[in-house]
Design a protein around this nucleic acid. Sequence first.
DNA 1: ATTCAGTTGTGAACGGGATCACAGCGTTAC
DNA 2: GTAACGCTGTGATCCCGTTCACAACTGAAT
Lengths: 240, 240
Amino acid sequence: MSPSGMGVPLVETAPRRRQASVRLLSEPQVSRLSLYRRQLQALPLDSPPTIHSHTLAALCGTSAAHVRRDLMTIGFAGSPVRGYDVEQLIGAIGRQLDAPEGQRAVLVGVGQLGRALLNYFTTRRPHLRLVAAFDIDPEKTGRVIHGCRVWPLAELGEVVREQGITVGVLTVPAEAAQEVADRMVEAGIAGFLNFAPVPLRLPARTFVEEMDITTSMERAAYFARALVGGGRRKDEQRAG
Amino acid sequence: MSPSGMGVPLVETAPRRRQASVRLLSEPQVSRLSLYRRQLQALPLDSPPTIHSHTLAALCGTSAAHVRRDLMTIGFAGSPVRGYDVEQLIGAIGRQLDAPEGQRAVLVGVGQLGRALLNYFTTRRPHLRLVAAFDIDPEKTGRVIHGCRVWPLAELGEVVREQGITVGVLTVPAEAAQEVADRMVEAGIAGFLNFAPVPLRLPARTFVEEMDITTSMERAAYFARALVGGGRRKDEQRAG
DNA sequence: ATTCAGTTGTGAACGGGATCACAGCGTTAC
DNA sequence: GTAACGCTGTGATCCCGTTCACAACTGAAT
């Protein structure tokens, strides 16, 4: 589906996700920390001010050892009996994950999925906000969708540069994805959420989170089959 | 927030993704194979009938070694000079990933995101089809959205059981996710795509693909920052 | 004061996916 | 016919996230 057709160079390709030169946190760690924080923030008001690794693990579907290891990595200590201070932990995670000055994101491709995501994000946390949307269709531009103004695609570079935006959500058709992504990189976007069903080929010092729904669906289907069908063929054994 | 509030049991938790007792393919392998197939099917009509590992790797953003290893795993051989036969490879991948009789999926939660996903999938491949949607809101039920009928949530069990559906997409609010998921499991669904921002706690012999958009966004933001900001602090070195 | 239950912090071991490197071989060119 | 190129198939290796296991410690109970 690449626009360049079959003219794919024969050079050996690099793995699709580049890492930071100095990587404080691993990818899964960032995911888990993000989840820890969200679960902690959603705790009822009358819950105790501290929480055990057990409990947090249960809330997040991980193991206690995992939680302890992650908190150790970010240098957050707890009390052997009381556990971890919830408020302070939320702060510590924020200090790791969030830019002190906050970060802004744009969304490109205001189709149905794009609109759904705008809805998802515009009312979200202040440290990471979707501040603009873009589309090539003149019918869609100018409007404000869920509190987010839709600009013509042509102005992407200007808006992104002016506001120092670093994160981008791609919800354009597959054919347009690579080209649009290139323009976003050029404008200064370094972190991508790619919902287009095409792997992006981007320069190093760029991070792409592939949100390939079709592939995810096929994974779910495959393992659904492997789990229920496969279990009948072979002696059942607890996962572990 | 888990409906059970703080009453989380103190038992040690298991890792959140259970594996098949006999696992033919690993999770990343299934993802890649799914992608290989899609890219192969999207090849222009005038492309050669065979393809090299190099080329396929470039199309999919992986390495040639990776491609060869994956195809070796599914027992598909190529010619040392011509490469892999495209048609046959597509067939071989299908034989691994697809159920011979096809698989059906349902979607629960016909909000904006749910509708966008319905749009995405109803016109898709025959081997994995979204055949029904469910919602608790009487206003939404009865209608047909993108060729997919919306049923009352109460009839979920019946429909899923009758049609032997094994895959489910969850696009309900966080508060409802766990409860709905439990009902889906009970009805026979074993593979989940969970878009609700809550980790699901499901029995073994069940597979959950967490599609946590918020977390993914925070990941993208974190690494965007680590890549462009972190590189200035430390000596730049190629990712490797 | 002292004991004890239960939790944290962390070195060490484990496991598995990614990558390397090269032998083997089919195809083409001459 | 023969040589040589370049791709495939795969054992071996590497690397890193996960898990284990236990010492150290804290606070409560007595």
